[in-house]
Amino acid sequence: MVDIRYGPREPVEEGEVVTEENVFDHYDEPQGFFPGQVVADLTVSTFLLAIVVVLAYAVPAPLTEPMDISTTVYVPRPEWFFFFLDQWLLYFPGAALIAVGDVIIPGLFVILLLAIPWLDKEPAYSPARRPFVTVVGLLVITVIVLNMLLALLRIVNFTGGTPAG
């Protein structure tokens, strides 16, 4: 029959010495991936599927008029996930600075993202115990969200050119 391995039953086994090396070896309260995590995953996926189906009917996917390359006044609206970069461009006016604002800085940001595991030297995992990394991370998230909101406001209030959508 199936050998169900939930891992050690007790957070600290009888006679076990918890050290810095083994403290994260197993969870206080483990569960088998099946059914514990699978049920939670399926519940969330079902919920997402319902949202997607309802949205698909309630708010149909957009399709504006056919592409016309001769247009000179059309002002395209970026997708929401590029709102940040769209807003970011405003801080770097002129052709010379476009590369800095939308290529070099985002490129460096991606390199920093990739390097995070090696830059974060704090041995602790809890966000409260590594305040520098946590504060920097939350500041970056705040800057991104604020710029997205600023871009959204600008786009919603935009009156020039052909209205998008």
């Binding site: 199936v2 050998d3 169900i4 391995r5 939930y6 891992g7 197993h26 969870y27 206080d28 309260e29 483990p30 569960q31 088998g32 991936f33 099946f34 514990g36 995590q37 699978v38």
Partner: peptide
């Protein structure tokens, strides 16, 4: 399927 995962 039966690998231990965190429950909390």
């Amino acid at each position: 399927l039966y690998e231990p995962t965190p429950a909390r």
